[in-house]
């Protein structure tokens, strides 16, 4: 069953006197529980696609339905609520808040939820334990290694129990061993039914993903296998 439907999505950016077409009438469906890698050369429209999927960047034309909701027809506040409920982001630079500890960074999405304080802490500790940082709740990001920061970012992305995880080059700055550990973490989340979509250049990640969207010149080529 389709969780995400993109219908004739176009995205144009102003380019001098004309327009640059980042995405050209793209239509794809993503089922619930898929594990997709978005690949393609630089400037091909990968990040644009990811931001559109993340309800962060409205398309110039076309519609996107997530769970049958026309997400870009929602008001700004409702879009924010939608992101909080449905989507977990893992940014390339992780973007942990430097003055908050690992635990507090994970608590960030919960701070605007209705969960009581105790429940919030319990949930945050559970996900930190799950990503292997049970002993580093109170470390500031500056005192964590690259791999540990990635784990905190993943913990922050999943603490709200989202249905979709969007990750941009999650292993880009990690060594091979740590990168594999992070990918295994995504795999285990996917095995629980979470739809995982990540932008990556790393061929080592092939073995984890189930489907590949190759973005080239604003068009998407859907491959059942990343080859």
């Amino acid at each position: 069953m389709s969780l995400i439907k993109l219908l004739e999505i176009e995205k144009n950016y102003p380019d001098g006197l004309g327009e640059f077409k980042a995405l050209k009438k793209v239509s794809v469906s993503i089922d619930s529980g898929e594990f997709i890698a978005i690949t393609g050369p630089s400037g091909s429209g990968k990040s644009t696609l990811l931001t559109i999927l993340g309800v962060l960047n409205p398309p110039s034309k076309g519609q996107i339905y997530i769970d049958d909701i026309d997400v870009y027809s929602l008001s700004g506040d409702r879009q924010a609520d939608f992101r909080q409920t449905y989507i977990g982001f893992v940014f390339q630079d992780l973007h942990l808040v430097p003055y908050l500890t690992a635990l507090e960074n994970v608590l960030l999405p919960l701070a605007i939820s209705l969960y009581p304080g105790k429940e919030q802490k319990k949930m945050a500790k559970e996900v930190l334990n799950r990503v292997g940082l049970g002993d580093k709740y109170h470390r500031l990001p500056g005192k964590l290694s690259g791999g540990e920061k990635s784990r905190v970012a993943i913990a922050r992305a999943i603490v709200n129990k989202p249905r979709i995880i969007l990750a941009d080059e999650p292993t880009g700055s990690l060594d091979s061993g740590t990168g594999n550990e992070i990918m295994k973490l995504f795999q285990s989340l996917n095995n629980e039914g979470i739809t995982v979509i990540l932008v990556t250049h790393n061929n080592e990640n092939k073995k984890y993903v189930k489907k590949n969207f190759l973005v080239r010149d604003g068009l998407i080529e859907v491959n059942q296998k990343w080859v």
Partner: peptide, 16 residues
């Protein structure tokens, strides 16, 4: 800026 935009990305409303 970066911190605020990230908060907006993870679901913080303008009012938050």
């Amino acid at each position: 800026t970066k911190e605020i935009e990230i908060l907006r990305s993870i679901g913080y409303r303008k009012a938050h």
